[in-house]
Each structure stands twice: as C-alpha cells, then as structure tokens.
C-alpha cells in the first residue's frame, strides 16, 4: 500500500493524544501521580491539540471532503464510521472532564471519576476502531490479524505514557511511577511488534492461482492491459526496497523502544531530567512514524496478484 503521509501523521499524532488523555484519567483515578490542576489542564490541552491535528490531517486524504460529515452515517457496519463517531464523542467528555477538574480544583469527586472512566473507555474505543479499520480488511493479510488493533492500542498507550512523563517532569511533579509504567509499556509493545514482524513474514493466503482460478498450473502475467499507470497501480502497487524495510525495522526497535526505555530508566532513578524525557518522546515519535510507514509499505493487497505477483 502507498504510505500516505496524512494517514501516518494522523495515526501517530492522535494515537499519542488519546494515550496521553487516557493515562491522565488513569493517573487521576488510581492516584498514579500527584497531579495538580495546572498540570492536568496542560496535559489535557496537549492531548486535544494532538488529537485535533491528527483528525484534521486525516481529512486531507479525502478526495471529496465536502461529504466528510456523512462519515458518521454507517456506525452499524463500518469501522471508519465507528472511529469517527467515537472521535466526536471523545471531545465533550474530555472537555467536561477538564472543566470539572478546573471547577473542583482537582478534588476527585464521583462525578470526575465517572468522567475519567468515560474518557478512558471512549479513548480506547477510538484507538481500537482505528486498528480495526485496517484489521477488518480480508484483502490485506498483513493487516487482517488481531495483532493490528493490539498494536495500535499499545502504541497509543506507550506514546501517551512517555508524553505524560514529560509533561509531569516539566511541571516539576513527581514522575517516577509514570516513567516506570512507560518502561513496562515500551517492553510490552516491543514484544507485540516483534511477534507481528515474525508473523507477517510467513506467506499465507490467496495466490495468483486462486485469483485466476487456474490452480493446477503455473500462472504468469503476460500483459496488464494498460500502458500507463492506473488507480490500482498508484494505490496498491507501492514497492519498497527490501533492504530499506529491513533497516527500518531495526530503526523502529532502536528509536521507538530501546532508546526511550534507557532514557526513562534514567528519569525514574532521578539521574536524568526533563531533557531526557523530551528526547525519549521525540525518539518514540520518530520510531512510531517509521513503524507506521512500514505498516503501510509492507501491506500487500491481493489485487497485486492480478498484476503478476505470485503471492501477497
């Protein structure tokens, strides 16, 4: 699949935003960090900016954005529609939550607890829907797996936890517990990603033989029937250099998981400060950007079989 920048930016940015807000609410509910009103509002504001920037970017890949409002119409069948509905529902509960925090001056009332819970649930539902948009496609075996939504949720929570550590540190709030949570998540996400890369390596699914129905002989493409590019070539024909894919995978593990884990360990043990947390978050973002690019570049749609690929 062609890796579109708008969609890569959208999933990384809004993923981090939802993750940050979810951790903010969890920290509030379970007293993970001693948050004050100012820090909560700053973190909530950053999360909403990241989410909004991502959602706006996602509309950039629409060819006919004037009909974008209709995207909420098929909640019953479409994961894209569900994502849109949950993303819209997130705003009132998130804003109400921040407002309630501001009004009560950070006293954890039952109302705030309920709002925190709704923010967590709707946030997770949105990220899960984002993952399911890809996972529900039977045409792309690299995406059609339960690991896809699992990866999306874990990466959102991981980048959110690292970002919350950064926000806490820069507001001089005790952040060791958040940093340790971040390290745990980084390890868990790295493991799931490793499982995904191992799994996606194995070739399964339709072949050029089942695509054409000639299952008892070798089938080769003679002619695609067109001399110039078509929509199908542009959308599904993307072919990345295999060595680039391999190197980027190493880059994903180093940037998204290894470097931030070390930096957060330094933060948790008080050896390192805000600078390290900032570097950790930047590293996570770069790593996740590469991971998302790979997610698209490695996905091979079954239509490629009709254009001569022997398998996907």
């Amino acid at each position: 699949m062609h890796p579109a920048f708008s969609v890569i930016f959208f999933t990384v940015s809004s993923g981090a935003g939802y993750g940050l807000f979810i951790w903010l609410a969890i920290a509030q509910l379970f007293g993970l960090a001693s948050l004050n009103t100012k820090t909560t509002l700053i973190a909530g504001g950053i999360a909403l900016v990241l989410i909004t920037a991502g959602l706006l970017s996602s509309t950039l890949h629409l060819a006919n954005p004037k009909n974008a409002w209709r995207a909420v119409m098929r909640f019953k069948t479409s994961w894209l529609s569900r994502e849109g509905v949950f993303a819209i529902l997130f705003y009132p509960s998130a804003l109400l939550y921040l407002l309630a925090i501001f009004m009560s001056d950070h006293e954890t009332t039952t109302f705030i607890k309920l709002l925190a819970l709704s923010v967590i649930i709707i946030g997770l539902a949105t990220v899960f829907s984002t993952g399911m948009i890809y996972a529900c496609l039977k045409t792309i075996r690299q995406w059609h797996t339960a690991l896809t939504p699992a990866n999306y949720i874990l990466m959102s929570l991981t980048s959110g936890a690292v970002l919350l550590t950064l926000v806490l540190l820069s507001n001089k709030v005790f952040a060791a517990s958040m940093a340790i949570t971040g390290i745990g998540l980084l390890i868990l996400t790295a493991l799931t990603k490793a499982i995904y890369y191992f799994w996606v390596h194995k070739v399964t699914g339709p072949t050029i033989n089942t695509a054409t129905g000639f299952t008892r002989a070798q089938v080769r493409l003679l002619d695609t029937g067109h001399s110039a590019g078509t929509f199908l070539n542009q959308e599904f024909g993307y072919q990345a250099d295999p060595s680039l894919l391999k190197n980027l995978k190493v880059g994903v593990f180093v940037l998204a998981f290894f470097v931030p884990s070390l930096l957060l360990a330094g933060v948790a043990t008080d050896y390192l400060g805000v600078g390290a947390a900032l570097l950790a978050f930047a590293s996570v973002l770069a790593g996740l950007g590469a991971e998302r690019w790979l997610f698209f570049a490695e996905a091979r749609h079954v239509i490629r079989l009709y254009h001569g690929a022997q398998h996907t």
Binding site: L62, A71, I133
Partner: peptide, 12 residues
Amino acid sequence: CMGCNYCSWACP
C-alpha cells in the same frame, strides 16, 4: 461519496 478510498481497499 467522500472519496476516502476505503471501499477500494476492501475490494479484492
């Protein structure tokens, strides 16, 4: 139609 291309992804 809003031109999101999603249906073309779902079509084998």
